[in-house]
Amino acid sequence: LTELETIYVTKEHLQETDVVRAVYRVLKNCPSVALKKKAKCLLSKWKA
């Protein structure tokens, strides 16, 4: 997740890969609050 925060991701990348699905899975299933927060921030950033 940290690496995903530092790289530039285009909408095309998100549509062509399962990155969003994987990050969403972390948000829903990971017991770590810190990782959930990171995943939520990434998804919000990409949605904007």
Rank of each mutant, 00 (worst) to 15 (best):
S32H: 13
S44V: 04
A48E: 15
K47F: 13
R25N: 09
P31G: 15
E16G: 11
C30N: 06
V23W: 11
L14A: 14
E16M: 12
K45F: 14
W46K: 00
E12W: 02
W46M: 09
L43P: 01
C30P: 07
N29G: 06
Q15R: 12
K38N: 14
T2V: 01
V26M: 14
V26A: 13
R21D: 01
L1F: 11
L27Y: 05
C30S: 04
K36M: 12
I7F: 06
V20T: 05
T2D: 13
R21N: 09
S32M: 14
V33S: 12
C30Q: 08
V20C: 10
A22H: 06
L14W: 12
S32I: 15
L35S: 01
N29S: 08
D18Y: 12
K36Y: 12
A22P: 08
K38Q: 02
P31F: 15
Q15V: 03
Y8D: 13
L14I: 13
K47R: 05
V9C: 08
T10C: 03
T6L: 03
P31N: 11
K28W: 12
W46I: 14
L1T: 14
K28F: 07
L4F: 10
K11C: 06
K36V: 12
K38S: 07
Y24S: 10
Q15M: 04
T6C: 07
C41I: 08
Y8C: 04
S44C: 02
Q15E: 11
S32G: 14
N29D: 08
R21P: 04
V9E: 15
K38M: 11
T6Y: 04
I7E: 15
K28A: 04
L1Y: 04
H13Q: 10
V33W: 09
W46H: 02
Y8L: 07
H13I: 02
R21E: 02
T10Q: 13
K11D: 11
N29P: 00
T10E: 09
I7Q: 11
T10G: 08
D18P: 08
K45T: 02
L27I: 10
V23D: 03
D18W: 14
C41S: 12
K45D: 04
A34P: 05
S32Q: 05
V20R: 06
E5I: 04
P31V: 15
Q15N: 05
E12G: 03
T17D: 05
L1R: 08
Y24K: 14
T6E: 13
V19Y: 03
E5N: 03
D18R: 14
P31E: 05
L14V: 14
A39L: 09
W46S: 00
H13M: 09
A39H: 03
V26I: 09
S32R: 11
L43T: 00
L4I: 08
E16Y: 11
E5L: 06
E12F: 02
D18T: 13
V23E: 03
L1Q: 14
H13W: 06
D18V: 09
H13C: 07
C30D: 05
D18A: 13
L27W: 10
S32L: 15
A22L: 09
Q15G: 08
K11G: 11
L27M: 06
K28D: 01
S44R: 11
P31M: 15
T2E: 15
N29I: 08
K38C: 13
N29W: 15
T17A: 05
V26S: 07
V19M: 12
P31L: 15
Y24W: 15
E16N: 08
T10F: 03
E3N: 11
L14M: 13
E16W: 05
K45Y: 09
H13G: 07
A39K: 01
V26Y: 15
L43K: 00
T17F: 01
L4G: 13
A34E: 06
E16D: 12
T17W: 09
L27D: 00
S44D: 03
P31I: 15
L42Y: 02
H13L: 01
K11I: 10
V19W: 11
E12P: 07
I7P: 12
K11H: 00
A34Y: 08
A39Q: 00
K37C: 00
V33Q: 11
E5R: 01
T17H: 05
A48I: 06
A34I: 01
L43A: 01
Y24G: 06
L14P: 10
P31R: 14
L27H: 00
E16P: 11
N29Y: 04
E3H: 02
Y24R: 15
T17S: 09
T2W: 02
W46D: 00
T17M: 14
Y24C: 11
E5G: 01
R25M: 04
K28Q: 02
T10A: 11
V20S: 03
T2R: 11
K47N: 03
R21M: 06
K45P: 02
W46G: 00
L27A: 03
A34W: 08
P31K: 15
S32W: 14
T17K: 09
L35G: 00
Y24D: 07
C41H: 14
Y24V: 13
D18F: 14
K11W: 09
N29Q: 07
A34L: 06
V9G: 12
E5A: 07
C41F: 11
V26N: 08
L42N: 01
H13N: 12
W46F: 10
A34D: 13
T10Y: 01
L42V: 05
K45Q: 01
L1K: 05
L42M: 08
V20L: 13
A39W: 10
T10P: 13
T2M: 04
V33D: 10
E5C: 00
V33P: 13
I7W: 02
R21L: 01
K11P: 08
I7M: 14
T6N: 04
S32Y: 06
E5K: 05
V33M: 10
E5W: 01
K37P: 00
C41V: 12
V9Y: 08
K37N: 08
L35F: 06
A48S: 12
T2N: 12
V20F: 12
C41D: 08
K37E: 07
K47M: 07
V26R: 14
L27G: 01
D18H: 12
L43R: 00
K36G: 09
C41Q: 15
V20P: 08
C41K: 14
L42G: 00
E3S: 08
K28L: 07
L4P: 15
K36S: 03
Y8N: 10
L1S: 04
W46T: 02
E3L: 10
K37G: 03
K11Y: 03
V19A: 11
T2G: 10
T6W: 08
N29M: 12
A34S: 10
E16F: 12
A39C: 12
V33R: 13
L42R: 02
K11M: 07
K38I: 07
Y8V: 11
P31D: 04
V20Y: 06
P31H: 06
Y8Q: 15
V26H: 07
A48T: 13
R21T: 05
K37L: 04
Y8R: 09
K45V: 00
V9S: 12
A39E: 00
K45I: 00
K28N: 04
L14Q: 14
R25K: 05
K28S: 05
E5T: 00
K38E: 00
V23C: 07
E16C: 10
K36A: 10
K28V: 09
S44A: 07
S44L: 09
K47Y: 02
T10W: 06
T6K: 10
L14D: 14
L43F: 12
K11T: 03
W46Q: 01
L43N: 02
E16T: 09
R25I: 01
H13E: 14
I7S: 13
L4E: 14
S44P: 00
L27P: 04
V26T: 15
L27V: 04
Y24T: 12
N29R: 13
E12V: 02
E12S: 08
K11Q: 08
E3D: 07
L4N: 15
V23Q: 00
A22W: 14
L4C: 04
L27Q: 02
L42S: 01
H13P: 09
E16Q: 15
L43E: 00
R25Q: 10
Y8G: 13
L4Q: 13
L14C: 12
K45A: 03
V9W: 06
S44E: 07
V9Q: 15
C30H: 02
V20E: 03
K11F: 01
H13Y: 04
C30A: 06
A34V: 04
E12M: 03
H13D: 12
V33Y: 06
R21Q: 06
A48C: 14
A39V: 13
K47S: 00
V33L: 14
T2H: 10
Y8T: 09
Q15Y: 03
A22V: 05
I7N: 12
Y8F: 06
K11R: 06
V26W: 15
D18M: 15
E16K: 08
A34F: 06
L43S: 00
A22C: 07
Y24A: 11
E5Y: 03
V23R: 05
C30V: 12
K37R: 12
S44Q: 04
K37H: 03
A34M: 08
W46Y: 04
A39Y: 04
E12T: 10
T17L: 00
L27T: 01
E3V: 09
A48H: 06
T6P: 05
L27E: 00
I7K: 15
K38V: 11
K45E: 01
R25L: 02
V19N: 02
T6F: 07
V19F: 05
P31Y: 11
K28I: 08
V23M: 10
T10D: 06
V26F: 13
Q15T: 07
A22D: 07
K36N: 01
T2A: 05
Q15C: 11
K11V: 04
D18C: 09
K38G: 07
N29V: 08
Y24P: 02
R25S: 07
E3K: 08
C41R: 13
V23T: 09
S32F: 14
K28M: 01
E16H: 08
A48R: 12
R25T: 03
Y8H: 09
A34N: 15
